[in-house]
Design a protein around this nucleic acid. Sequence first.
DNA 1: GCCGGTATCGATACCGGTATCGGTAACGTA
DNA 2: TACGTTACCGATACCGGTATCGATACCGGC
Lengths: 332, 332
Amino acid sequence: MRRPTLEEVALAAGVSKMTASRALRGAADVSQESIAKVKLAAEQLGYVGNRLALSLSSQNTNLVSVVVPSMSNIVFPEVLSGITAGLEGSGMQAVFGISDYDPDKERDIIRNMLSWRPAAIIVTGLDQPEETVRLLKQADIPVIQIMDLDGTPVDFNVGLSHHMAGEAMAKALIKAGRRRFGYIGSALDKDLRAGKRKTGFARALAAEGLQFLAEETAPAGSSAVLGKALTKRLVEKCADLDCLYYSNDDMAAGGLFACMEMQVSVPSKILIAGFNGLDLASALPVSIATSRSPRREMGESAAQLALAALRKGRDGLSPTIEFTPEITLGEV
Amino acid sequence: MRRPTLEEVALAAGVSKMTASRALRGAADVSQESIAKVKLAAEQLGYVGNRLALSLSSQNTNLVSVVVPSMSNIVFPEVLSGITAGLEGSGMQAVFGISDYDPDKERDIIRNMLSWRPAAIIVTGLDQPEETVRLLKQADIPVIQIMDLDGTPVDFNVGLSHHMAGEAMAKALIKAGRRRFGYIGSALDKDLRAGKRKTGFARALAAEGLQFLAEETAPAGSSAVLGKALTKRLVEKCADLDCLYYSNDDMAAGGLFACMEMQVSVPSKILIAGFNGLDLASALPVSIATSRSPRREMGESAAQLALAALRKGRDGLSPTIEFTPEITLGEV
DNA sequence: GCCGGTATCGATACCGGTATCGGTAACGTA
DNA sequence: TACGTTACCGATACCGGTATCGATACCGGC
């Protein structure tokens, strides 16, 4: 008792396969009577079209492949949300893959996705190894790299400069009077964008003759629990810091909780700075500094860029859409 | 300059399409020489197999469709993470869709996904309208409904009872000496599982002659910011509560922050109880009560169940896998 | 030189749709 | 009556793979 095919629907309706196809698609050259018969038969048989056959025949799919590195903090899910929202109403369907920050896994996922012949592909970051880039180029579809801006895109690029984000935050904090900086991060070997922020931050410090006086990092993924633990360790080790820069807001929130428990006053004694501008950060009882990354907007923008590239072709479209994170220091 | 087909690879290698197919798949009956020639040609042309053709021909796909209602808090992304992890190494590929808690959208997404002829489908919850259920049944593939347990599954069911989770939390809080309960929630019309927890909680209260003395709800999605705002409103309105039950941990965290700002001591004056057991909850400076929902585990379990059903058939497999959330009250 | 077995290969059909194009019936018009 | 037009329909080819089965070449043994 297999799924019914169009042929079977046609048989039940007493018309040919071709007429049934036209009837269901609302194409021309079909009588009202045939349309009614076919629709009835399709309904009764529970017919659902076979996209495999459709796409093979029509030589295109309605798929937009998306590869993100992680789902374990809220940032990428929000990007995905933005992408599906941006695709809404276009008939396009997003398909997601998770690379776990592993370049080999990312390449395999991309290869796998390309075998479905998506109409466009959205990948995270600009630091793919050469083999992956070749794969993307050969796919001959719009390639949109998101989140990052520091590097050379294959095709299109929607994101922000993490170097500059780090730099801008450092400048703002220096301007607010901070001098003795510590850094707390996680999985920097994998999360290259967090690394870029740190580099940019350090560069801005150096420009003022400053540097990180201490740092704590761990290979695990970012989390409030980890941020809390590393902060306790760092503050015990080096008590006279007046500002902590974190790899992101999850870590920074944990840092704030650590300070609250250790009775270290925030921000008067230590200012805490993160990255992302999570909803959580604005609910905290003591405000922390953060730069809001427009995650949902980047997703939507990438999706719309993909649609535009499919409609109008690559040419005539700007290859780069730059977002600028907006810094809030909280009460300093 | 289209993507090369197997035919073109074969031509370049000087063999037939069939031999090229066999060579690339590592099938028998091909000489080492042919294999070498074909692989070289495929490499040089950047050949990537066409899964549309493969799946149409072989009458099956490696897809597992997944439909979740939201990506705006960390719960569902973690479930998706668990699903991809559970599928790892099986050759199966998860495909996600987001329904935004909208039954009509969910039905459309499911119909769309079914048109790709997935090998199995995982959907959230047990409360699909009849039409959607019919669609799922007619698909004639393993259907796995996750997260919830209160209802009748189409096929397989992996989740926990939210009625019981709410009930258990209420009992634990009563046992801990709390009597004057308030409720704070969001989007209860959409998030049916949060509603079930509330119902279960209220039922347990009633069994002890108690009830919610006050509640604040809002139609917006859950967030720490919303939890904070509603808590302030509720506490101002009704000052003598000794326990607040929230629709989830995001809201509860916001509630805690509100209490900290209002100088209401937690938990001695008001105990705060959420749901999910987020990482965040265990990092908070004051611990809150929560029940840990095994999100990742449910995802992995659902994925493995799907694989088992595909390998061994539906029969002989238990139709239900029940998880029990683990309650922690924190310091009471 | 004939035979059977093995290794290798390719022609053909098929999966389930759609594009294309030719055919037929009904009707109006010259 | 002959012919063009319109409306509707279906046979066929094709998309890019794989399953199947028959063909061919080569080998050793008799």
